[in-house]
Every structure is written in structure tokens, then in C-alpha cells.
Amino acid sequence: MSDILRAEGVCRDFGGLRAVSDVTMTVHSGDIFGIIGPNGAGKTTFFNLCSGIYKLTEGRVFLCDKEITNLRPEVISRLGLSRTFQSTQLFQFMSVLENVKIGCHAATKSRLVDVILHTKTYREDEEYTTQKALETLQRVGLSQYADTMAGNLPYGIQRRVEIARSLATDPKILLLDEPAAGMNRLETDALQDFLKQLNADGQTILLIEHDMKFVMNSCNQIMVLNFGRKICEGSPQKVSSDSEVQTAYFGKGGINHAQN
């Protein structure tokens, strides 16, 4: 199992607040790695650090043993780390197909001259883009929405469009920020099956999620953050029985304390 994403002592300060503090973790090839933690634990900040949207205060990040610390988001994306956002960031006024086509941008290379003269590069790129976009939609099960404007779709489907768009970049690792947020149980179960299928096809996934059932059922490795620190890491069984994790989520048995 080779390392796909490795963070070493990652820190991020916002003014006097240390939002992410000395987080070290490794995602191996073929993992579905989950990050959980109470609100404000620094999960999304950690994602933003890995994907280049925020700069690190300290620490280093590696993607497949290549250092990606503080590279720009578009560069990191091209190196094979693709992400979705907690609040969906779709191209709302474009069709679903066009959204996914933009995901193929980095893999194609036709330039202004090519597209004006319709050179061979242009034709190959367009063919690849259309083919890849349709294929990806089929894979995600969104073919029937290809021509629908993305902003007009129900929320659950918008999230899937965002995943499809990221998948079109052929990422080495897919970062999903709360993919099940705002979904009902049925949609969540469908998403879980879908992610497992993706993973079975060899996709490495790192996800943030609040839905415990979802995380426990789908991830093989879990990291728990609290106040920016890693408090636990391991299999779902290990994490759910960890006393520090229980404290973070439920507090210490307050009533007993009061009586003692």
C-alpha cells in the first residue's frame, strides 16, 4: 500500500487562533479515509490546507511523495488531488454535462490557435472531453440530467454533479467535504453504495462527514479532530470505543461528577 496523501505536522493559525494544530496523517492507496470531529474542529480548514486554498502556517503536505505544500489550488488539482466543497460550488447556470466537461479541462491542452483553426489537437480534445464527460455521468448515474441546468437540480443531485465533475479530472485522491450533508436517509444510503463502488474500482477517497452511521459504515480508517488537534486515529471500531472521542462528542459524565 503506497502513500497517496501524507500530512506532516500541519498547522494553520487565524490571528491568535490555531485552527489546525500539528496534524500528521497518511492516506494509503485504496482507503476510504474519514475525518470526523465536532463543529469547528478544523476539518474543513484541513481540507483547504491540503487543496491549496489556504496557506500552511507550519508543516508539510505530500501527494504521492511529491511535496505540495503551499502550491496553488490549480496546480494541486493538476497533480491529482480533486475536491468538492461543503457548500456546493457548481457552475449553476451551466448544464450538468458542461459542468463535467470543465472537469476535463486540465487533461486536455488545445490552445487558442488550435481552437480557431480546428487543428487535430482541438478535435482530439473535444472528442475526449465529450466522451469522458458522458462516461463520467453514466458512472455516477446522472445521464438523464445531462442537459439540465445544474442550479435547477435538487440538492442531493447537485452534490453528485460536483463529485462527477471532480471525478472527470481522474484524481489520485478525491476529497469530499460533507458529501451527505442535507441528504435524506435514502440519498445517504445511495451515496454510501456509490462511494463503495468507486472505491472498489480503485479510487482513494478522503472525506469529512458528520453522519456517524455513514462514516462508520463506509470508511476503513478514521481520524478524529477536536479543537484542531488529532485526538484519535484508527479503524471505526477503535475510534468509536475511544474514551477521548466520547468525551469530545458527549462531554464527561457530568451528572456523576456533580454527585461525587
Binding site: S51, I53, R72, P73, E74, S77, R78, S82, R83, F85, Q89, L90, F91, Q92, F93, M94, I102, G103, H105, A106, R165, S166, T169
Partner: peptide, 14 residues
């Protein structure tokens, strides 16, 4: 894509 959503465009490698 830049007009529509620059953040998304960047994170897709544009």
C-alpha cells in the same frame, strides 16, 4: 467557468 465560479474553476485545475 471563471465568470461562473472562480474557486470551482481553480479547484478543477484551470
Amino acid at each position: 467557468s471563471i465568470r461562473e465560479n472562480e474557486l470551482a474553476a481553480k479547484s478543477l485545475g484551470i
